[in-house]
Design a protein around this nucleic acid. Structure first.
Length: 565
RNA sequence: GUGCCAGUAGCUCAGCUGGAUAGAGCAACGGACUUCUAAUCCGUCGGUCGGGUGUUCGAAUCAUCUCUGGCACGCCA
């Protein structure tokens, strides 16, 4: 068992299901086809620990008022061998379940038993899932969009892994096509400017204007001199790209690594062209009638795939579009490599691409639900209460590097996972560095440090260490603050399940803030050190369990859990 | 013009496969350190869920209309 919730849900479903059967048998309720029995946690504590709305949902089939059906059902319930102490009908027809406290004490024992594995689930059943994220153009530094996508994608991957999926993290390298072309032209212009004088060579208006391009040109010259002056332009650009591209990719890899992200696969777009997979993919689409030809180009048929319009796959100059390569890429993921499920993280400005991409998979027998696109809204940075666009230090657009330098990896990752991906994110730079209670990162980390300090002090000053679970009486924990904290800790596996289901890591950052809050309340209300041994030990068990949970969540989202602050 | 996303407390946001009296943090105000970390806690204040209509036992949640903001509609990626 991984979750006490799972166990309780099973108990309630069994009890309710059996009661329905018994009532149908003795005729007190009509025989009905009841579906999944919903189990929820009531909003108000006074309504018990768990509840179900099943009779309200089945009211029509039961042909009687929900409250009446609920009463009959409750009479027929057999509560032996469950945590359920009593069931009551309330409100318009809720059935509320009141549990005996043993479920909370068992939850605590479960945490101690599982420790760092507490929260692991098997809902993924080893389904192979590919999570592709960031995939930034390797033509320049990483920006805020990449930063949010990176934090989100990495955490989604971690959550799915925790939930039992077989996860591959992947970076798609756009190492060919128009952007690379432009990269080459920009490098060439800077190269020539360095050697011939800036005013002698015009810089293309739509080129990459960043300093890094000039740095590449300078570095190339100091290493290889001016030999490319005599080379023909095409060859010259190729050489420069060959030089600068691997450097940029390596920089991206290092940057993301220092951000806490390690990929399993770096997949080259160029390789899709070289292996003939792009060509093969288009041929397949053509042969199966998914393309049309017009204006000298080959188009993906919108009509055939239920899309608004046709999309160019091969331009009239014979060069495949990004879409063509992207279709080949996803075909490679699903067909060649056999992933069951693919998750792409895109900035919200790419939303128009979603329907196309999903539809384009159907000719290959890949159903739409196997491709999940998580769109995230863009980020606005705030400093001094105003929108910040420029880096303090360089005066240029703020890069991921600048952000990590200013606020650090922990704050960056935490803040980017604070809001649901679909909502706009205002990133307050001042708040992220402030060491105060308003800063949620510090709030959570402080709770962890406080716990570690408490445990350390007990050990060093009193020689007290946590005993084995079988020698502790968690039943001594009866105060509201203690029970509320245990209840919160017991929710963790359920939070992982929901985060995996909704692909929303923000659930976990909010959850861990909640855990910290409950701990701080407990800490202010109860003492550990100085209490009678049995109670002290029970509380130590609770405190250590809190440490385990906070540590597990922070570890899951790759944020440092300090032992001292 | 068409489509997608968003609109919930002064601010930033949860809640959205319909459920009980709509939540949290911050801000504001009032309290709590001779004690295991006050980077903390406790309390008070705060709402026409953008607006209208509909669906039904019940709507922040679903449908529809409308207003506002962001984005997308390239032989760009």
């Amino acid at each position: 068992m991984n979750s006490i919730y799972e166990k309780i849900h099973q108990q309630i479903k069994r009890v309710v299901g059996d009661a329905f059967k018994a009532c149908a048998k003795n005729g007190s309720l009509p025989e009905t086809e009841i579906g999944e029995i919903p189990v929820e946690v009531p909003r108000e504590r006074g309504f018990g620990d768990f509840s179900t709305t099943i009779v309200m949902q089945a009211a029509r089939q039961l042909r009687m008022p929900p409250r009446k059906a609920a009463e009959i059902l409750i009479q027929a319930m057999d509560l032996t061998d469950t945590y359920i102490e009593k069931a009551e009908c309330a409100g318009p027809g809720f059935i509320n379940f009141y549990l005996d406290r043993n479920w909370l004490y068992d939850a605590l024992r479960l945490i101690q038993e599982k420790k760092e594995r507490y929260g692991e689930l098997d809902m993924g059943r080893n389904v192979r899932v590919n999570v592709e994220f960031v995939s930034a153009n390797p033509t320049g530094p990483l920006h805020m969009g990449n930063a949010r996508g990176g934090a989100l994608g990495d955490c989604i991957a971690s959550i799915l892994k925790k939930a039992g999926y077989d996860v591959t993290r992947e970076f798609y390298i756009n190492d060919t096509g128009n952007q690379i072309e432009k990269f080459g032209i920009s490098l060439e212009a800077r190269y020539l400017q360095q050697l011939l004088g800036e005013d002698k060579v015009p810089f293309p208006e739509d080129g990459y204007h960043g300093e890094d391009i000039i740095d590449h040109a300078k570095a190339y010259i100091s290493e290889y001199g001016d030999a490319l002056l005599k080379e023909n332009p095409e060859k010259r650009r190729e050489k420069l790209v060959q030089y600068a591209l691997p450097i940029n990719i390596e920089r991206i890899r290092k940057m993301l690594s220092s951000y806490g992200i390690e990929y399993d696969v770096w997949f080259s777009e160029k390789s899709l062209h070289e292996s003939g997979e792009v060509e093969e993919t288009i041929r397949f689409l053509k042969e199966h009638g998914y393309t049309v030809e017009k204006d000298g180009a080959i188009w993906l048929s919108g009509e055939k795939l239920g899309l608004e319009k046709d999309e160019v796959l091969i331009r009239n100059n014979g060069v495949p579009t990004y879409l063509a390569a992207d279709i080949a890429y996803h075909r490679n993921k699903f067909i060649t490599r056999g992933f069951d499920w693919c998750i792409d993280l895109w900035g919200a400005d790419h939303h128009g691409h979603v329907a196309r991409m999903k539809a384009a998979m159907s000719p290959f027998g890949v159903s739409e639900d196997r491709l999940e696109v998580v769109l995230f809204q863009l980020v606005r940075l705030y400093r001094n209460g105003e929108i910040a666009r420029m880096s303090k230090r360089t005066g240029k657009t703020i890069s991921l590097e600048d952000l990590l330098e200013e606020v650090g990896r922990d704050a960056a990752r935490f803040f980017f996972n604070l809001k649901t991906s679909g909502s706009h994110l205002d990133f307050d730079l001042d708040l992220a560095v402030s060491q105060s209670s308003e800063n949620p990162v510090y709030y959570v980390q402080y709770a962890h440090a406080r716990i570690c300090s408490l445990i350390r002090k007990l050990r060093e000053e009193e020689g007290v260490v946590l005993k084995g679970t079988d020698r502790i009486n968690p039943e001594l924990l009866t105060r509201d603050e203690e029970l509320a904290l245990i209840r919160k800790l017991s929710e963790y596996p359920e939070e992982v399940r929901m985060a995996a289901k909704t692909l929303e890591p923000s659930r976990l950052t909010r959850y861990v803030m909640d855990v910290a809050a409950h701990f701080h309340s407990f800490y202010n209300a109860c003492r550990v050190k100085g209490e009678e041994e049995p109670l002290m030990m029970a509380r130590l068990m609770l405190v250590d369990s809190t440490r385990v949970v906070i540590n597990n969540v922070l570890d899951l989202i790759s944020i440092h859990a300090p032992e001292k602050m």
